[in-house]
C-alpha cells in the first residue's frame, strides 16, 4: 500500500494532537491509533508522527517502562509559548503566575529556608 497518501502532509500530526488534547490521561500509541478519525493509520506511522511532535515540544512522552510508553499533549507550554517569550524579553521569568501548593521555589529560597531551619535547630 506504500505510496498511496491517505492524508495530507502533517494532517495526521494535527489529528493526533486533537486526540491527545481531548484525552485526560496520557495515551499509548495504540490508543491514539484507534482514536484517530478516518482511515486507521499504521502503528509505525503514528509513532513517527508522535516522535516528530515530541521533538517539536508539542507532545510529552512518558516512558513508564520500555514497553509502556505514553503520550500527552503539552498544551499549556504551547499556549504559553508566546507569552513566555514576551516574558523573557522583559525579565519576567518562568515563575508561575498562579500560586501552586508545592510549586518550585527558587534555589535561593530553598537555601534561605534550610539555613534558617538549621540555625534554629542548633540553638
Amino acid at each position: 500500500m506504500a505510496g498511496i497518501r491517505t492524508r495530507a502532509k502533517g494532517e495526521l500530526e494535527g489529528e493526533i494532537l486533537r486526540v491527545l488534547r481531548s484525552h485526560e490521561a496520557p495515551a499509548s500509541a495504540a490508543e491514539i491509533q484507534d482514536a484517530v478519525p478516518g482511515i486507521r493509520p499504521a502503528l509505525t506511522t503514528v509513532l513517527t508522527a508522535l516522535e516528530r511532535l515530541v521533538e517539536k515540544g508539542e507532545v510529552l512522552r512518558f516512558a513508564e517502562s520500555p514497553r509502556r510508553v505514553r503520550f500527552q499533549a503539552a498544551l499549556s507550554e504551547v499556549e504559553n509559548a508566546s507569552e513566555l517569550m514576551r516574558g523573557a524579553l522583559v525579565g519576567v521569568d518562568r515563575r508561575a503566575a498562579l500560586l501552586q501548593f508545592a510549586g518550585d521555589l527558587a534555589d535561593d529560597d530553598v537555601a534561605f529556608l534550610r539555613d534558617a531551619l538549621t540555625r534554629r535547630g542548633k540553638r
Binding site: 499549556s76 504559553n80 522583559v90 503566575a97
Partner: peptide
C-alpha cells in the same frame, strides 16, 4: 502582559477535564 500570563495559565489548568 502579566494578566495574559495568568489567564493562559488558568486556562491551561482548567483545560483538563
Amino acid at each position: 502582559l502579566l494578566v495574559d500570563m495568568q489567564e493562559s495559565e488558568r486556562d491551561a489548568v482548567l483545560a483538563a477535564p
